[in-house]
Nucleic acid binder design. Structure first.
Lengths: 168, 168
DNA sequence: CTTGACTTGAGACTGAGTCTCAGTCTAGGC
DNA sequence: GCCTAGACTGAGACTCAGTCTCAAGTCAAG
């Protein structure tokens, strides 16, 4: 079974446990999400479906995304901009993001050492963690080569909350 | 000079370098921010000023916050909810957040080991970081004692982007 | 075929944040 | 003291992601 169909199946199973149905709309969305996108926005999805002449309303998109998040197949993340992004979860692996403030590209990484250290800190503070999220904003290699400056004042200010003064 | 007035001064200096003026409204906002709040929201500020019968419009609040962010005195952060929070920057120290999904409280911490490791990762990926931000969502000690469960499905889903499936 | 629960689209609504514009203020030049 | 340019402000319109409502459609089970 192709990977996408496996995801459709997974979603159907989840829906089953909730007494919900796998409809045409939901199938179409899951296929779209798991075949082309990795990080995406709700509106982007709406647009894509419109382009493909698949009629799905905004409400349904948001509703389906909510279900996908609940099922654990999709995750809602902040990538610096002021609205949500979504990413699908493959193999449930946790990862963090390096986000280029010049071109918007996202590099993922996973680092057990960071994770362990974070856990240690939580223990020390008697905090029971359920989820953690590390974002690093900056300039990716290819943008730096093109001469992008770390300053990028507008974007950085807009995104990232006073980054400027951290740099000396 | 009391701490708050020192901040007013700092802001005035910044404004000066930009050819901008320190107005009554700006003074009032800086005083408010640096005397009572630590993490706050724009709307909260609007409300407080209204309660104190200080007439300041929403536009001015947002404009002033933008200036404060630019000056580096205030930082804009995402604390899980779907709008911005602000925090003032004292002594420019970087720190991260443990956010309780039950009571909303925020514990700050700073860990050089994490910071170094993050820097190493960036080097490895040839990424030039300008800012980083680590958030951990979970349950604080006092909520846990009161029996709060890590599940808190609604809030966690709403906030935190599929946290549920990370937990086994 | 009926019932009841699930699903959908359309469009109204919300709320944070932004923008515009006309009027006000102020520093600096005369 | 008066003028002027440019900074500043409030009111309210606007935007845009996301949510909600409601009437109509669909489907499974009895």
């Amino acid at each position: 079974m192709p990977a996408v169909e496996r995801e459709v199946n997974r979603f159907e199973n989840f829906l089953g446990t909730q007494g919900l149905r796998l409809t045409q709309e939901r199938v179409a969305l899951v296929r779209e999400i798991f075949s082309t996108h990795y990080h995406f926005e709700a509106d982007e999805l709406l647009l894509k479906m419109k382009q493909k002449a698949v009629k799905i309303s905004r409400a349904t998109i948001y509703r389906t995304l909510e279900l996908l998040v609940k099922s654990g197949m999709v995750r809602r993340v902040h990538l610096g901009e002021d609205h949500y992004h979504y990413e699908y979860v493959s193999g449930n692996s946790h990862h963090d993001h390096l986000i280029c403030t010049t071109c918007g590209s996202v590099i993922e990484f996973h680092d057990p050492m960071l994770e362990n250290r974070t856990r240690e800190i939580c223990e020390k503070k008697k905090f029971t963690p359920t989820f953690y999220n590390l974002q690093v904003l900056g300039i990716c290699d290819s943008c730096r080569r093109k001469g992008a400056l770390p300053e990028a004042p507008d974007r950085v200010t807009a995104i990232s909350e006073g980054a400027l003064q951290l740099r000396k």
